[in-house]
């Protein structure tokens, strides 16, 4: 494999990893605080449809992004209310969120189609390689930088935001008092409460933050990467994100590495498919590949978790 091809594949890997890192960082923060949201697939899908309809109706990609973030955050707030305030089981509530999002996005999509919004207007999506606030010449120069150009600057804008968000999350978790609190929320919520920390308020806040990030990731899929919506377009990506959070051992660095590795596999398989391998191997193998990889990764990792001690458990334990 020559160098140019490697750069292409690396750049594709980054493009594929962006939504995984975005949604994964949010889920990681929530899980560290003890909140397991398996409804992340539904939040992504909500981001997709809200991003699409927002951009199509508003005629502007930014409206789409904002709509995606708000819609997914609202759905996450519903999850937070049910699990934190009403103490419902987190797994079943998460699956209910998924059902809601599948039905809701399907209904909204049919309505949008009926109103004549089946496709994204030409200028209502984000385009590649644009860094807001820089002149065209500077941007072109940045994109043409060897190696760094395609990997960092010839990406959609959210790629840079993703790097910033992941770095911030890492810094928060590892270096600040907030990080200590978030860890403690998932490991020893009683101790938090004893120190005057409002456990439930923190958990609700983090779940909503995770929802907003998943919404942004959904918008990335619909109004950046594909410029369109199709029913169930997330295709299980949310569940892969859950696997990646575990595989990264609930550390931001591990998560980012896992997502990039996943992106490389994704880029490689689409490259191999385009090279004619799909004539030899049924396309379903490629379709199942992300999930097989995720399962193998989880099975291969060393046992004994470094995860949050009370993940998925309501607080206070006894009412």
């Amino acid at each position: 494999m020559n160098d140019a091809l490697m750069v292409v594949i690396a750049a594709q890997a980054v493009t594929a990893a962006v939504p995984l890192v975005l949604a994964g960082t949010g889920e990681l923060l929530a899980q560290r605080a003890g909140m397991l949201n398996v409804g992340i697939e539904g939040l992504l899908l909500t981001g997709c449809i809200a991003g699409f309809t927002g951009a199509a109706l508003g005629g502007c990609a930014w409206i789409g992004l904002a709509a995606a973030i708000i819609a997914a955050a609202l759905l996450a707030a519903l999850f937070a209310w049910a699990t934190v305030v009403m103490r419902c089981d987190q797994i079943v509530t998460g699956m209910a969120i998924n059902l809601l999002a599948v039905g809701g996005s399907g209904t909204a999509w049919l309505v949008a189609q009926g109103q004549g919004y089946a496709e994204l207007p030409a200028n209502a999506g984000f385009s590649r390689g644009i860094v807001p606030g820089l002149s065209d010449a500077t941007q072109a120069w940045l994109r043409d930088l060897p190696f760094i150009g395609p990997l960092v600057f010839d990406q959609y804008g959210l790629a840079l935001a993703m790097a910033l968000i992941a770095a911030t999350a890492w810094w928060l978790l590892v270096r600040t008092r907030i990080g200590v609190i978030i860890h403690a929320l998932g490991d020893a919520p009683d101790a938090c409460a004893a120190n005057g920390i409002a456990v439930r308020r923190w958990r609700v806040g983090l779940v909503i933050l995770a929802g907003a990030l998943a919404g942004a990731a959904g918008a990335y899929l619909s109004i950046m990467r594909t410029h369109g919506f199709s029913p169930l377009m997330t295709g299980g990506m949310g569940f892969v994100v859950l696997a990646l959070v575990i595989f990264g051992r609930w550390h931001v660095g591990g998560l980012v590495a896992a997502c990039l590795g996943f992106g490389v596999i994704d880029a490689l398989q689409s490259h191999l498919q385009s090279r004619g391998l799909n004539a030899v191997i049924p396309y379903q193998v490629f379709q199942a590949l992300p999930f097989i990889v995720a399962l193998i990764a989880l099975a291969a990792m060393r046992r004994g978790t470094s995860g949050p001690r009370l993940l998925g458990q309501a607080w206070p334990t006894e009412r």
Binding site: L36, L78, A82, T83, M86, R87, C88, D89, Q90, I91, V92, T93, M95, A96, I97, N98, L99, L100, A101, V102, G103, I246, G307, L310, L311, G312, Q313, A314
Partner: peptide, 19 residues
């Protein structure tokens, strides 16, 4: 989805350790 949520909220089936 709404039915599941409504039953959960109404019934308070308590959460337990899962992952």
């Amino acid at each position: 989805g709404l039915l599941v949520l409504a039953v959960l909220v109404g019934g308070g089936i308590t959460a337990r350790r899962a992952l």
